[in-house]
Amino acid sequence: MPSFSHFFNILTETKGVFLKAMLLTLELTAVSIILGIVIGLIFALLKNSKIKVLELISDAYVYLVRGTPLIVQIFILYFGISGIFLLPDFWAASIALALHNGAYISEILRGAIQAVDKGQLEAGRSLGMTKALTLRRIILPQAFRRALPPLGNQFIISLKDSSLAAFISMNELFNVATTLGSNNFDEMTYLLIVAVYYLLLVALLTFIVNRIELKLAVSDR
């Protein structure tokens, strides 16, 4: 087991390279979250559409994505389809992550939308608003408010999932840790260091989500 001073030395020495990797991890996570919300929203609306065919499409997507490991999905987008089409590594990873997130987010949003009182839709419609307008202005804002805690959770999962991009040679946090670890024959120290970075990022993310929740709670149910 490495000594504490050894750990601390390496931590400060490798600050530069880890911070660069952290930036990449954040980029991957951010893109996958934003795209994931868009994808999740689309499939949540499809599922709520009451049109059988659209509901089935949504079900199929969720089943496929939740039913296969994320690493398999990343590999398919990176290695698999390179016969047809060469996706740059950043996009292979972030699209796979976004699609993966999207399935879970669609379930979260679907539940949140359904939980909004039916009377809200009726009020909107009775004022002459179309269903789409009511959805956009009245229902979705309330649904998102409700969905924030489970969404925040999904964001944290997404942050950690970004570590799988290491397997397609992206220099995010986990890859840097294992590369430096094996180059220096000291895997343990570097793994502990990267764990600290992940903890920091999760704390940051949690803080941001909490602030958003507070801000939206002004209208207070």
């Binding site: 290695f79 390179s82 016969g83 060469l86 590594d89 397997f167 040679s169 220099n171 890859n175 590369t179």
Partner: peptide
């Protein structure tokens, strides 16, 4: 430099166009 866990994976990526 890009690193993979195995040489074979690296060669596979090369062969695939990366």
């Amino acid at each position: 430099i890009k690193t993979y866990d195995s040489d074979i994976t690296a060669l596979q990526a090369l062969s695939g166009g990366r």
